[in-house]
């Protein structure tokens, strides 16, 4: 390697390291600060120490988080809500995409255009009417050993799940992937006596691992990070998920160490899920199945 080339490589590494630092900074700052006493966070703030685990390290912030909030309970709520929505979502979204891409029925094109159009409507635009709607919807409840009809969907877990099961973007991702699977497979299965649902279940789903992984991970993140909707639809502790739970730390005396500890703690599952699925995720994004 010539000196010139070496210099060029070095330059590139510096640029990349700088960018890496820039993107990693908030994450490192959050995790490191969660182990520092309140005073140290601020004294380290304007030096490199802000992102290094140096000085006095403590678990007090984590202790505080568990003492002050029902983080375990919120965590369980989030897991149930996210897990339930993702599982239902994988089924519902892929099934509609299957129907749009592989079956033939009247009105198919219209529904497909509607799905694509829906992708551009942000949640914020529909959130108020949606709130009015769910506040009027009755739901089944279980009280004193009897099935009862309750007044509204407010303050429940399912109000945080059902509106988010079907998702236009995920339907579109599935649709794109399914469309590229040759129709011969369906026809061979049809001759083998498989019904449309059996074709979906035995042929299409097993062949679509990458797109299921992609949608699972994206849906997981969307659901885990829900903030606006739970704040609006859930006031009670019982059904509260992790994200709105952070609010209780902003009060008369805001302790940043505890906020960082809370934030670090609830970021963990996202990282874990990403690491489990990232190989398939990357493969799927890189593959021909999904464009754009």
């Amino acid at each position: 390697m010539t000196a010139n080339k070496r210099l060029k490589t070095l330059g590139w590494y510096l640029v990349l390291a700088g960018l890496g630092y820039l993107f990693l900074f908030p994450l490192l700052f959050m995790i490191v600060s969660s182990f520092k006493p309140e005073s140290a966070i601020f004294t380290d703030l304007y030096s490199l120490r802000a992102i290094l685990p140096v000085g006095e390290l403590t678990l007090d912030n984590y202790q505080g988080v568990f003492d002050k909030s029902r983080i375990g309970h919120y965590f369980l709520n989030s897991l149930l809500i996210t897990g339930g929505t993702v599982v239902m979502g994988l089924f519902v979204n892929s099934l509609l995409a299957f129907s749009l891409s592989r079956l033939e029925w009247r009105g198919q094109k219209l529904i497909l255009s509607a799905v694509i159009a829906l992708m551009i409507i942000p949640l914020e635009a529909v959130v108020v009417p949606m709130l009015l709607l769910v506040s009027q919807l009755p739901s089944l409840g279980w009280e004193e050993g009897r099935l009862v009809l309750e007044g509204s969907w407010m303050n429940t877990r399912h109000v945080q799940m059902l509106p988010f099961v079907a998702n236009a973007f995920f339907i579109f991702l599935f649709y794109q992937f399914f469309r590229d699977i040759p129709k011969d497979f369906d026809e061979a299965a049809k001759l083998d006596g498989a019904s449309p649902f059996q074709i979906y279940r035995h042929i299409i789903v097993p062949m679509s691992g990458p797109v299921f992984a992609t949608v699972a991970i994206l849906h997981f993140m969307v659901m885990w990070n829900q903030y606006l909707w739970p704040i609006m639809a859930v006031q009670s502790e019982a059904a509260r998920p992790v994200m709105p739970g952070i609010q209780i730390f902003f009060g008369r005396e805001t302790k940043w160490g505890e906020i960082f500890a809370y934030a670090s703690f609830i970021t963990l599952p996202v990282l874990v899920v990403f690491m489990i699925f990232q190989k398939r995720f990357v493969r799927s994004l890189a593959g021909a199945g999904i464009k754009g």
Partner: peptide, 20 residues
Amino acid sequence: LPAAQRGVAMVFQSYALYPH
């Protein structure tokens, strides 16, 4: 009759073997 009940079986140009 639906395809499966006609008593026919077909070999496709692409073979259409289920990869999984």
